[in-house]
Structure formats: C-alpha cells, structure tokens
C-alpha cells in the first residue's frame, strides 16, 4: 500500500503551517499493485506541535498553545498493469488550538490523483534495482479558508507533482530515494490586501513551488515491511514570518522529519493489512558550525498515524493472485 505514500505526501504538504510529515503509510513507495489488484482503506492521522519556527527563530505561543491537526483519509489504488498503478485519496481534516480563543476549522480538503509507473527493473548483484516515475495532481474539493493559519485545514492551492524515485532491494533489506517537484497554483484569499515583504493589493497570493526529498532504509519480510525514513520539504521562494506575526500560506515553509513506518499484513487473512507510522520534525543540524536543514515557518510536529486496508482483485489475474506486496 505503499502506493499511498505519494498521495499522502501531497496532502500533507498542502497542510498548513504544518510540517511536512512524510508518509504515514507504512509501506514502501516501491510496492506495486498487481494487475487488477486494488487496495482500499483509510488512515487516521494525528499531528500536533507546541513549538514552531518564526522564520528561523524557534518559539512557542501561549495564545495558541498546542495546535492539533487530525485527519481521516480515504484512499484507494489500483493496478492497471503490474508496472502501472493509479491512486486516489481524499482527507477530512479538523484543527484545534489548545489555548487562546481561535475557532478551529474542519472539512474535506484536497482530492489527489496519482499515476505511478515502474519502467525499469534490473538485477544488480544479488538484488534488484528499480526506477519509478510518479505524476500527481491535487485540488481542493471544498472552498475551505486558506489564510487562517495555523488553523486552516489546508492551503487551497491546486498542485501538480512530478517525482523520480530509485529503489534497491537485496535480500530482506531495501534502500529508497526520491526527489519531487511540486508546482502550486496561486490561491485566492478572503482579504483584498495582505503583507508579505510589502503590501500586496490583490486577493491573489503567489504560492512558491516546492521540492521534497525522501530517503529510507528498511526491511522487507513476507508479512511485515518496516522502514526508517528521512524526509525534507524545501519551499522554492516564499517569505519568513516577521517577529510575532501570524503565519501566511506563502511563507517559506521548510522542514525535515524523521519517521518510522510499518505495514503488517495479517498472515491468516491476507486481504487485510494494518499500517502505522510516527514522524517527528527535526530541528536544524549543525555541520561544521553551520546550521543546515534549518526549519522555517513550520511547527515542530509529532505525527502518528494508523490505518487499515483491504486488498482484493477486481478482475481475475491469471498470472498472479497474491494479495501480498509486489516489490
């Protein structure tokens, strides 16, 4: 069900003054549905932060307290062929601040559609090496408010995503790395003017594009897949929050998170699998006295997720009827 990772990622980067959380999916992106196979289910996600970065200054805010974002995301994917999958997902999101007076928001967020293609698989040593190309699209399903950070449920841009991913598996171990370019449409807000680094007299907001990078290492067994994942989100442009200002959708939101994800398929009933994940946004790392991977304009969130999926064949596949992961 790895397939869901790209979906999840896109949904999360549209989330709010909120750290990019890497996939809460437990599986590895490199798994493909077999032809005619579908996997459908839902994931609950709970993400919260108390500290955040105002520009690069780490702080908290007693007038917000702890911000909690929860979501339930319905997802489905389908194998058109063994090497070509399509996926769709839609989350319902709700937000809450533990202190202060601000009213939380809730609603359906962005629908996402992905096509995932595995054009190359070659043996390398005792293992095998694959290359994936993934294209994605997401767009808001409702007119939710974007410029109400940190409590808006999303940023309301329509996004296009292109990703290249490399995957190597040898015995029970695997490595994976990917780079993703996310193009984000401009958004329309309720205010007729707003301030970035200058006053903009328009209700349109220019949304900077983003890059995300992801690397993971994991083990792959018949019923269990587990991985350690490092994920980086870098906004290509955007501006820093000013001292004691509120966040804004076109802020430069950068973050790096470390996560552990697992997927377990029930051995006695392989239709069903359980996914779980935990991710933590990291502070900057000092290398030779220089801060690298410094978070900017995001919350230091801790995210937990838990989901259940049901796998089945929509049509009979004469070559393969396994419900286990094809990797």
């Amino acid at each position: 069900m790895k397939f869901f990772q790209p979906i999840k990622k896109l949904v999360l980067i549209t989330l709010v003054f909120q750290p990019f959380i890497s996939s809460a999916q437990t599986d590895n992106d490199a798994i493909m549905m077999n032809k005619f196979q579908s996997c459908t289910g839902a994931t609950y996600m709970h993400s919260q932060w108390t500290n955040y970065w105002e520009g690069t200054l780490k702080r908290n805010n007693a007038n917000i307290g702890t911000v909690t974002t929860q979501s339930v995301m319905a997802m489905s994917n389908y194998g058109i062929t063994d090497n070509l999958n399509v996926m769709v997902g839609l989350p319902y999101v709700w937000t809450h601040a533990s202190a202060g007076t601000l009213h939380g928001m809730k609603g359906f967020q962005d629908i996402s559609l992905f096509v995932k293609w595995k054009p190359i698989t070659i043996p390398v040593g005792n293992g095998k090496f694959s290359v994936f190309a993934i294209g994605g699209f997401s767009t808001p399903t409702t007119n939710y408010i974007a410029a109400y950070l940190p409590l808006s449920i999303g940023l309301h841009s329509t996004n296009l995503l292109g990703r290249l991913m490399a995957y190597y598996k040898n015995g029970m171990f695997f490595l994976r790395a990917s780079a993703t370019y996310v193009w984000r449409s401009n958004i329309t807000i309720d205010q007729p003017s707003y301030y970035t680094t200058e006053l903009i007299n328009s209700n349109k907001v220019q949304m900077p594009n983003m890059m995300t990078y992801n690397g993971s290492v994991g083990i792959y067994r018949k019923y269990l897949i587990a991985e350690l994942m490092l994920d980086n989100m870098t906004t290509l442009g955007g501006f820093d929050m000013r001292r004691n200002d509120m966040p804004f959708p076109s802020n430069k939101m950068n973050s790096t998170s470390l996560g552990v994800h697992a997927k377990y398929t029930l051995p006695f009933y392989t239709h069903v699998s359980i996914v779980a994940g935990a991710d933590q946004v990291l502070g900057g790392v000092k290398v030779f006295g220089k801060n690298i991977l410094m978070p900017r304009n995001v919350g230091q969130s801790t995210t937990l997720s838990l989901g259940a999926f049901y796998a089945f064949y929509v049509k009979h596949n004469s070559k393969n009827s396994s419900l286990l992961n094809n990797q």
Binding site: L84, V115, W117, P119, G135, G162, Y181
Partner: peptide
Amino acid sequence: IFFALVVMISP
C-alpha cells in the same frame, strides 16, 4: 504507457 507518460510529463 503513453497515457502514463503524458500524465507524468504534463505537470
């Protein structure tokens, strides 16, 4: 495959 290429390149 053509469809997949188009989808991936179009972004």
